[in-house]
Amino acid sequence: MVATVLVVAMAVSLVLTVLPGDAARLMVGAEATPERYEAARTALDLDHPWPARFARWLSQAVRGDLGISFRYPAFSVAELLQRGLMVTFPLAALVTMLSFLVGVSSGVLCVARLGGFWDTFLSLGNQIFLVLPEFWLGILLVGLFSVRLKWLPAGGFPGWAAPRAWLHLLLPCLALALPRAAYFSRLTRALLADVLFTEFVRTARAKGLSEARVLGSHALRNALLPLVASLGLSFARLLAGALVVEQVFSLPGLGKFAVEAALGRDIPLLLGLSVLVTTVVVMVSTIADIIYGFLDPRIRYA
């Protein structure tokens, strides 16, 4: 677990170091003053070779110090990431919950009416929403709900202290949740269709259980394992994956910092971001493994 994060940090740090040319010069641009250039060299610690630099970065990183951002010299990378997470974390959680609930219930509905109207209709919708470009969906939602109907704010985020701040997250949440709901719906349908003709489902039917009980508790329980795995992964991936939609709605989340860091070549910030995202992905998959045990006794006793 720690090894994965370490390898990623090393790889990203190496890639960012093997910049063609002078990293500090690239960071500040050709017209920068000598003082600014020197500051960049110091910030990047360029006077030492890469292994020494990485070792120092690592020893600071494990103590929670990810260095100073170069674009925002007043802030440390850790502070910036924290600010980004304040927006991205609730957004990702909201999107994951919404898409999971909608997706799984529509998947169950599909299987309950397999081959019927709802199945055809929802499967068609899934096919479309699954590949619909999220940022285009976001722009269309802004056009409809903010510009035309004037129901919701078009973008920006006033901070959590502002009244009804969550309204600003509603449209981005919708733009991100629809394709993911389509994914969960498809997955649920496929998983349930797999167990639909097994003996234990037939037994449940033969006992006289209602179709809702058969599908909802007996069949779904067996489909739950892969679903939980992709639920966790979907959340972890959203931390970076919400990036483009965050730009559409100009939300000050992790995505904003990532794009600014890339365009402004803010190496400490990019490195910190990569490490954060990887850590969350690794943590979530470990937690999913543990939850597996609770959901499936076969794994616990094995």
Binding site: V7, V8, A11, V12, V15, L16, V18, L19, P20, R237, L239, A240, G241, L243, V244, A258, V259, A261, A262, L263, R265, I267, L270, L273, S274, V277, T278, V281
Partner: peptide, 21 residues
């Protein structure tokens, strides 16, 4: 496998930072 596990958009951003837009 490592590249597959790493968020693709972040990867693209890092490459863009290295090579420029």
């Amino acid at each position: 496998d490592g590249i597959l596990a790493f968020p693709s958009i972040l990867l693209a951003l890092i490459i863009a930072a290295v090579l420029g837009r």
